[in-house]
Design a protein around this nucleic acid. Structure first.
Length: 518
RNA sequence: GCGGGUGUAGCUCAGUGGCAGAGCAUCUGCUUCCCAAGCAGAGGGCCGAGGGUUCGAAUCCCUUCACCCGCUCCA
């Protein structure tokens, strides 16, 4: 099965999401709210299925992880301790000539001085030492160029010049005098608790769910009676004032995370990091992401977050390029120590067997629910030619598909409807799965509609059903059909949803579906 | 925030001063109808908002709002 995605397909996916009820723009009737999205009936199912699958794999299938549901609002000191108040604010400098923006802490500046005459010749700026030094050369008079190596001006951090940025050249275009003063961008959303808006009631909407886990570390440890190594899992909303949101639901200011903080003995951290990277990578594959669209990437030292010792990203090949779905970081004992320090509470761990007390290291697999949902949508999107018509379909894994099966009478003939309703009721009996019913328009049209939603199987009631009490099941991906007695339907459908069409008994198959164009 | 782009039906878009349109989608009816079938019909719009020019504005001008792409990121 060959599928390719051009960048143009992103528009098709956005359009499909709107058209079929996966994702809507927030507050659309008021003109929309930037970078915020609502999930419609099908999107809500997809997200729910996704989170359930994550929870099953990381909590139920393991004996060393327990769940948590911490509040979005936390004591403001939490964010001082975590380092977010201090570090999560980026000062940005902008060049009014080339309109590029950069963070001062990523730029170096060199003062080029004529030492003999004690005269400032100019400044050079750039992103690394070599770049700055090479830019310094043209500023130097020939006689100094000879002794350049000896008098090479050692670059200093851009931050040292924050007071007078207007004299400096832009690190991108080297234009002098077009840099703005640094502006602070605090990425945390402020809010006020209580009816009175004063600084005493100021707190934040959490920028990550992780801190809810850290502050509950001792609570969970004592009540769950877990021993190291063990983890705490939670899904929930987080908020960041992203400077540049975009790419549909990929980077938004309100988003949902699925995070695990896995506590291990110091020294075992490197090993556990590797294991988690592997586990999480295969989780995406197990739900149908194509391997060629998934990769891991280790963070370079200089891109590590303030709390991390090591970090791997799991990246997906979106139409606009590779981008992060999940980060698996070694947060060391940074968070527990900081919270112990700021709260005055002892958050260390006592190992009964080794008779020693220490601060556990933390491995953090932290994924984005919305990003994963988008990746699964993009990866599942497909178009194929059947009888010169384009069939648009989502090849979603049955676990993720918003609708598990659709019950379709061949037509709206009054003799067919009671039998169809009967089958529909039968499949809904347990209430465990989302089953659709549709009798509008032609059967072909309804198949196509279900294909577009990613419904794995369609159950069709035809006139023969009235005689033999049997129905057909049609497979979304192969278009094959099988026929079986209605009483056996619930069991076989469950079987197919769990194991896929390959679990279908060959002797039941009745058709191979319409021919696909080459 | 800066630069560029776009706002017309649920979706994709045409319309550049003279009655607001097309395709698809949606809905209804008919047909023993298995892969977007046919026939007949229907609903759906303050042309993003406000102001101006004009006999007349979706169209020209001003203002404003929103969204998209890029720039810093990291779920």
């Amino acid at each position: 099965m060959t599928r390719s995605l051009d960048p143009v397909d992103m528009d098709k996916i956005v359009s499909l999401c709107k058209r079929r009820g996966f994702i809507f723009q927030s507050s659309e009737i008021y003109g929309g709210l930037g970078s915020v999205w609502d999930y419609g009936p099908l999107g809500a199912e997809l997200k729910r299925n996704l989170k359930d699958a994550w929870w099953r794999a990381n909590v139920y299938a393991r004996d060393d992880v327990v769940g948590l549901d911490a509040a979005i609002l936390m004591h403001p000191q939490t964010w001082v301790a975590s380092g977010h108040v201090e570090t999560f604010a980026d000062p940005l400098v902008e060049c009014q000539n080339c309109n590029q923006r950069f963070r001062p802490d990523q730029v170096l500046v060199s003062e080029v001085t004529d030492i003999q005459n004690n005269r400032l010749l100019g400044y050079a700026s750039g992103f690394n030492r070599e770049e700055v030094l090479s830019k310094s050369r043209p500023l130097l008079p020939k006689r100094m160029l000879v002794m350049f190596q000896a008098t090479a001006p050692e670059p200093k951090p851009f931050q040292d010049y924050l007071g007078n940025t207007s004299k400096l050249p832009c690190p991108f275009c080297d234009t002098v005098g077009q840099l703005t003063d640094p502006r602070m961008f605090n990425l945390m959303l402020k809010t006020f608790l209580g009816p009175v808006e004063d600084t005493a009631s100021l707190t934040y909407l959490r920028p990550e769910t992780a801190q809810g886990i850290f502050v509950n570390f001792q609570n969970v440890l004592t009540t769950s009676r877990k021993k190291l190594p063990f983890g705490i899992a939670q899904t929930g909303k987080a908020f960041r004032n992203e400077i540049t949101p975009g790419n549909f639901t990929f980077r938004t200011r309100e988003f949902e995370q699925m995070e695990i903080e896995f506590f291990v003995r110091p020294g075992a951290d490197d090993d556990w990091l590797t294991r988690w990277v592997n586990d999480r990578f295969h989780w995406y594959l197990s739900l149908g992401i194509r391997q060629e669209n998934l990769r891991t990437r280790r963070h370079a030292k200089d891109e590590l977050a303030h709390y991390a010792k090591d970090c791997y990203d799991i990246e997906y090949h979106f139409p606009w390029g590779w981008a992060e779905l999940e980060g698996i970081a070694n947060r060391t004992d940074f968070d527990l120590r900081r919270h112990a320090q700021f709260s005055g509470k002892d958050l260390s761990y006592y190992d009964d067997e080794a008779k020693e007390r220490f601060y556990p290291y933390v491995i953090e697999p932290s994924g984005g629910v919305d990003r994963a949902a988008l990746a699964f949508l993009v990866d599942a999107y497909d178009e194929e030619q059947i009888r010169s018509e384009t069939r648009t379909l989502l090849r979603l894994h049955p676990d993720l598909a918003p609708v598990k099966a659709a019950v379709l009478p061949l037509s709206r003939n009054e003799r067919l409807l009671p039998k169809a309703k009967e089958v529909y009721a039968l499949l809904r009996e347990q209430g465990a799965r989302n089953i659709d019913y549709d009798d509008a328009q032609s059967i072909g049209r309804r198949y196509r509609r279900q294909d577009e939603l990613g419904t794995p199987f369609c159950v069709t009631i035809d006139f023969q059903s009235l005689d033999d009490n049997a129905v057909t099941i049609r497979d979304r991906d192969s278009l094959e059909q099988l026929r079986l007695p209605i009483p056996q339907l619930p069991v076989l459908l469950a079987e197919l949803l769990n194991h896929g069409w390959s679990a279908a008994p060959a002797h039941l198959k009745v058709t191979t579906g319409p021919p696909k164009d080459a």
